[in-house]
Write a protein that binds this DNA or RNA. Structure first.
Lengths: 114, 114
DNA sequence: AAAAATACATAGACAGTCGATACATAGACA
DNA sequence: TGTCTATGTATCGACTGTCTATGTATTTTT
């Protein structure tokens, strides 16, 4: 299991892309959506997620809105315009990197995108 | 520039795959080959490479052979059978991870392999 | 009533990569 | 002759991002 090492550097971009796709999400929802989409292959822990979200907030990539559901509060995260730009930039870079790594580990193959 | 974060967790697998492809390589050769193959997009530093190689040696994934070229010594690294197994295992896992991430950042697309 | 799921959060540990630095040989060029 | 660049191995300390473990509290299910 080296998957936990692989996640490094990609978590942020994954979060940003999910927010872009869904418009707004709360923390627990993000962990469940990643779990669902990846069929349990990638599990984001609270100890990884919340610090990452707080940093995105501090960097003004997202804004938050607290919503009470019953007596429990949810904190929704939504991209700012700066966050949108950053999402595009980071995603481009990540795709480029994935391409490049793919190139190194099975020569002649590339990511199918476009 | 987050590329340096992305490399985390992939460096080992990249090295193993290069050794598998080339039979044997020395440190400096690895840095140059990665630079060449990735068109300068991935640069492996000495401070990253040598600790990684030393760990592979300690884990018996590679064996070394010192060769004198003129008065300068090169240390060639070659996969052991254990290293071969590990290469296959890690590569499979990495490809799976790349697939999964691709899934998260552009839905519906997958790595072209097989 | 107990257990599991939902929902947020933080602290400390850990590991991997980088930047900087070091030493030495070799070749090119002025 | 002297200097610069490339070749080649190597280590140290710093940084940073993720994980494990833990905590609190509410809601739903059994």
């Amino acid at each position: 299991m080296q998957t936990k090492d692989l996640i490094k550097g990609t978590l942020n971009t994954i979060i940003l892309n999910l927010l872009k796709e869904h418009g707004q999400m709360y923390g627990y929802e993000i962990t469940q959506e990643v779990k669902r989409k990846t069929d349990g292959k990638i599990l984001i822990r609270e100890g990884s997620l919340y610090p990452a979200l707080h940093k995105l907030l501090a960097d003004e990539m997202v804004i938050t809105e607290e919503v009470l559901v019953g007596r429990r509060s949810r904190i929704y995260y939504k991209l700012t315009s700066k966050g949108h730009e950053q999402t595009i930039e980071q995603t481009t870079e990540l795709i480029g990197f994935l391409d490049t790594v793919a190139l190194l580990i099975y020569p002649g193959k590339k990511l199918a995108h476009g």
